[in-house]
């Protein structure tokens, strides 16, 4: 087994081109479990933890570019104002040592339908920046995942960063699990209101083979808010609107029965999460001064 330890981004891309069989390791919180249990026998490992370029974040024209090697703890500590939905999801991940080590790029790389970053990234309409030695491209988050643990990332590519629009309105993330920490989501839901564009963003986790948007729920709410002038008046939303939104969120799910929950339970839970998330976001919007 070969160990490759690039110390810069260009070196990493060169190594990726020369050794497409090498498994990248960032925080290692997914890969090491596979290695420790003998479920993964790669001929080479490539450590990404020394690449300073991947560990940084910064604002660029209304977006935050979050390096793929940025950890959950860093997101919680530094990005809660700009990216509240992502920060809430980061807080729901694992335990302190997992959050200290696990990265946003590793979450995308694993492409688990239960990955907690994915719903808020869907709701915020984020883009994934990937690169190979010869090419750099950005992929809308909604097109990044193609199946459970599968993404469009090429064998010669690495994830460089995630571009997330700075929040312009309330964002929430909710997750159902058997305890408040250390759980893979039974299901999860993220909602983001984008008042300047009069848009609504959603993302469902553990609700299908890939993270899913609830387009019909978004359109219903956008239509209702436009027709009633509620973006301007900030009037309370009727219970029937909250309920309808929850139903449409649940209808967007394509859940399965598995060890964590039945499909029927997931649908029902998502209906409740959708309704609650909207009431929390709308209360926050009504309370906001600007």
């Amino acid at each position: 087994m070969t160990f490759i330890q690039p110390t810069s981004w260009p070196e990493a891309l060169e190594a990726r081109a020369a050794h497409p069989e090498a498994v990248p390791v960032a925080g290692g919180t997914d890969v090491l479990v596979e290695l420790n249990f003998g479920r993964l026998h790669p001929s080479a490992l490539m450590d990404l933890s020394r690449i300073a370029e991947l560990r940084v974040w910064g604002r660029e024209s209304g977006q935050v570019r979050v390096g793929s090697g940025v950890t959950y703890s860093e997101i919680i500590a530094h990005l809660v104002d700009d990216l509240p939905g992502l920060a809430l999801a980061a807080r729901a991940v694992g335990s302190p040592p997992i959050r200290n080590r696990g990265t946003i790029g590793g979450n995308l790389g694993s492409a688990s339908p239960a990955g907690d970053c994915h719903p808020p990234l869907m709701a915020a309409r984020a883009e994934v920046e990937v690169a190979s030695l010869h090419r750099r491209r950005t992929i809308p988050i909604s097109e990044f995942f193609v199946g459970p643990k599968r993404s469009v990332l090429g064998r010669d590519e690495l994830i460089a960063a995630v571009w997330v629009p700075v929040a312009t309105g309330p964002q929430v993330f909710t997750k159902v699990g058997t305890r408040n920490a250390m759980v893979i989501a039974v299901c999860s839901f993220a909602l983001a209101l984008h008042p300047p564009e009069r848009r609504v963003g959603t993302g469902l986790g553990s609700a299908g083979p890939v993270p899913l948007p609830a387009h019909a729920a978004e359109q219903f709410l956008e239509g209702h808010l436009a027709e009633t002038g509620a973006w301007e008046s900030r009037a309370p939303l009727a219970d029937s609107v909250l309920a309808r939104f929850g139903q449409l969120v649940a209808e967007a799910a394509r859940p399965i029965d598995d060890v964590r929950a039945s499909a029927a339970y997931r649908r029902r839970a998502l209906e409740v999460l959708g309704r609650r998330a909207l009431s929390w976001c709308w209360d926050e919007y009504r309370g906001a001064k600007t």
């Binding site: 919180t29 479990v33 420790n36 302190p96 040592p97 997992i98 080590r101």
Partner: peptide, 12 residues
Amino acid sequence: VLVCSCLVLAGQ
């Protein structure tokens, strides 16, 4: 930084 040493590669 507090980490689970079982999830860090020795080489890291």
